[in-house]
Simulated assay, not measured.
Amino acid sequence: MISSDVLILPGWQNSGPDHWQSLWEARHGYTRVEQSDWMTPKRGDWMIRLEETLLARADAGLPPAVLAAHSLGCILTAAWASHSRNTHLVKAALLVAPGDADQPGLAEQLPTWQPVPMQTLPFPATLLNSTDDPYCTRARAEAMAKAWGARFVDYGQRGHINGESGLGDWEEGHELLKSLVDSAKPS
């Protein structure tokens, strides 16, 4: 896997220094899609930023990207894919601990993120969910995976699969990412 092909899509409030996304970025040279506002995210703004990033990569002659999304980054992936005409610019997506923006409590804090898109993704995807994730129930994560056409992985009790989950640079997750890329159709 070429490091320039992986785009890191953090969730709401970004990913801190102990988060596996930040550690992967530092260790493997992956590129974080930087958003203009991490604290009060607007879905449209985040979708535009992802679109611009993918188009810039294509203009530079880079192959389709692999998305490594966490939490609201998973919802961003689905929202972007449901509207973009450039979904061919993504090879595959690892969707980790989707944050259910329709869930009471989150819906009020993330008012531009409803409804969560439930259309099939036009690229291979794997969705990992923790059974004790406070931001998305297992049933809802399974429903998202089914709607998105993603492979569902029950990751046990790992909280929100973030920096507080004690995963470090999460080599097991990185192996899942590599496996997903290897199984995707050649670009």
Rank of each mutant, 00 (worst) to 15 (best):
E175K: 13
G166S: 15
R49S: 08
A56H: 04
P122V: 12
M39R: 13
W46H: 05
L110A: 03
P41E: 02
D182Q: 14
L106D: 01
P41V: 03
W24N: 10
D169W: 13
D37G: 05
K42W: 02
A65M: 00
G159C: 13
S36C: 01
M1W: 00
W12E: 06
H19Q: 04
D133T: 14
A97G: 09
D132H: 08
A147H: 14
M144V: 00
G99I: 00
T53S: 12
S22W: 02
M144Y: 15
Y155I: 02
H174M: 08
S130M: 01
E52A: 12
T137K: 07
Q103P: 00
A107W: 06
A139H: 04
N129F: 05
P63E: 10
A92D: 11
L128Q: 04
K91S: 15
T131F: 02
G159P: 10
D45W: 03
L176G: 02
N14K: 01
P186C: 01
Q13E: 13
K146T: 11
D45S: 12
G73E: 01
A143I: 05
V116H: 08
M39D: 14
D102C: 02
L62F: 00
E171G: 14
F123R: 08
N86E: 08
Q157G: 07
R151Y: 05
G11K: 07
I8T: 10
A150W: 03
E51A: 09
G156V: 10
L54K: 06
H160V: 13
D18H: 09
D154G: 12
G173H: 05
W148P: 07
N86F: 05
G44A: 14
L72V: 15
I161A: 04
E175L: 12
A141C: 05
H70K: 06
H88D: 14
V96F: 07
G11D: 09
G156S: 12
M144C: 06
A97C: 13
L55Y: 04
V116Y: 08
M1P: 07
S15R: 03
N129H: 14
H160W: 04
T112L: 06
D100E: 02
G73H: 07
W170T: 06
L7S: 02
A143V: 05
H70Y: 03
G44Y: 01
E51H: 08
S36P: 13
N14S: 15
R158A: 15
L7K: 07
A107I: 10
Q157M: 13
Q35W: 10
R43V: 07
A145P: 09
K178E: 15
D182M: 07
A145S: 13
W12S: 11
G73D: 04
S179G: 15
N162F: 08
